[in-house]
């Protein structure tokens, strides 16, 4: 069974390469389908497959950088970037990523990196699952109430931006595209904080930066999307650079995963055309929970079960999305064929 294992030249470990391809592919499918996220499964997945934790984080962040290049180009959302805000935020993002990476290296030096990162991931994934399930619950509740004309579907909550804009710490700056006027320290602080998490967890950070841009900085959603995409790409590249410089990246694994992700992203993106209903959110939430359970199992040394659970969970969600895609695509192609046959007749 040696052929199922690939030697990683730098970390010096032999890795089950189908698992590597599957992780890359799944990140592509899930990222393409949900429009965000996916990186959360890479660091734990790589660690469970046998990568040392620091290598798992560095490899994850580099892989996200490669993947974000094409998504940024494809979606061409740069029209909605507030470049002034983007560049100001880069200061915070890059400093944050560097600090996150320094914490990782410091934890590695004292030999505690594995357990600490794993437990932080458990908390992080629990929160993602909570958000997903709450979203599902709300969607179902709204659907049930849709007959009620008084129900607007609006969500209550605290928008912290107006309060934060009152902080009068110079220099103050006006961001034209986002149409906000605030202290320069607000976007720097927000991007720094999200950058630290991105650098520490090896993720793009969009999952955290997007809501932060909307609720803390007060950017309109479309500007937040564009500006965040710009941040993810630049911060991913900086993350890849700094982790490479620290020697904690396995390029061969990055390439293998990118190949999987390129195919997966197409399938995920096409599947969004045909997706209906809320069931997929439950599947996504369950995959997050399964990933969380597998991290806990890895922490207690139950490696085989951890591997089976994480690979099983991401395979299930991929198969679910692929079924949506193939059914929809087949129906569309059939329809096209019938239309052209009808036109000829």
């Amino acid at each position: 069974m040696d052929w199922l294992y690939m030697h990683m030249p730098i970390a010096g470990v032999d890795i089950f390469w189908p698992g590597l391809v599957l992780i890359g592919y799944s990140v592509g499918v899930i990222g393409g389908f949900f429009g965000m996220g996916g990186a959360w499964m890479v660091t734990p997945g790589l660690n469970i497959l046998g990568f040392p934790m620091a290598f798992a984080i560095g490899t994850d962040i580099a892989h996200i950088a490669g993947k974000s290049m094409i998504s940024t180009m494809r979606h061409s959302k740069f029209g909605n970037v507030d470049y002034r805000l983007g560049f100001i935020m880069l200061i915070g993002t890059m400093a944050g990523i560097e600090l996150g990476a320094q914490i990782v290296m410091a934890l590695e030096r004292i030999g505690r990196i594995g357990p600490v990162v794993r437990w932080v991931y458990v908390v992080f994934l629990a929160l993602i699952a909570l958000m997903v399930f709450y979203d599902y619950y709300k969607a179902v509740k709204n659907r049930n109430k849709s007959d009620d004309p008084s129900h607007t579907g609006a969500t209550g909550g605290v928008n912290w931006a107006p309060a934060l804009h009152k902080i009068n710490l110079p220099p103050m700056m006006h961001f034209r595209v986002a149409n906000i006027h605030c202290s320069i320290w607000l976007p720097i602080t927000v991007s720094f904080v999200t950058g630290v998490l991105a650098g520490f967890l090896g993720i793009g950070g969009g999952l955290l930066r997007m809501p932060a841009l909307i609720y803390f900085i007060g950017a309109p959603t479309h500007v937040a999307v564009g500006t965040d995409l710009f941040e993810v790409m630049i911060s991913g590249l900086y993350g890849a650079f700094t982790y490479s410089l620290k020697g904690r990246i396995e390029l061969v694994a990055v390439f293998v995963m990118l190949c999987g992700a390129a195919i997966g992203a197409q399938i995920g993106t096409v599947a969004t055309k045909y997706a209906q209903g809320y069931g997929i959110r439950v599947v996504f939430g369950c995959a997050v929970l399964a990933c969380m359970v597998s991290i806990i199992l890895k922490q207690y040394g139950i490696n085989v079960a951890a591997t089976v659970i994480i690979l099983g969970a991401i395979s299930s969600i991929c198969i679910y999305i692929m079924v949506i895609m193939f059914r929809g695509a087949a129906a569309e192609l059939r329809e096209k064929k019938m239309n052209s046959a009808g036109a000829k007749a």
Binding site: I103, L107, V116, L127, L197, F200, L208, P211, A212, Y215
Partner: peptide, 24 residues
Amino acid sequence: MVKKISAASLVAALLSLLPAWAWA
């Protein structure tokens, strides 16, 4: 509510980093 959860997740994720920081 989603806003609250988003903000709470950011704060909680950061708080979970604090012990890591102190340890490091």
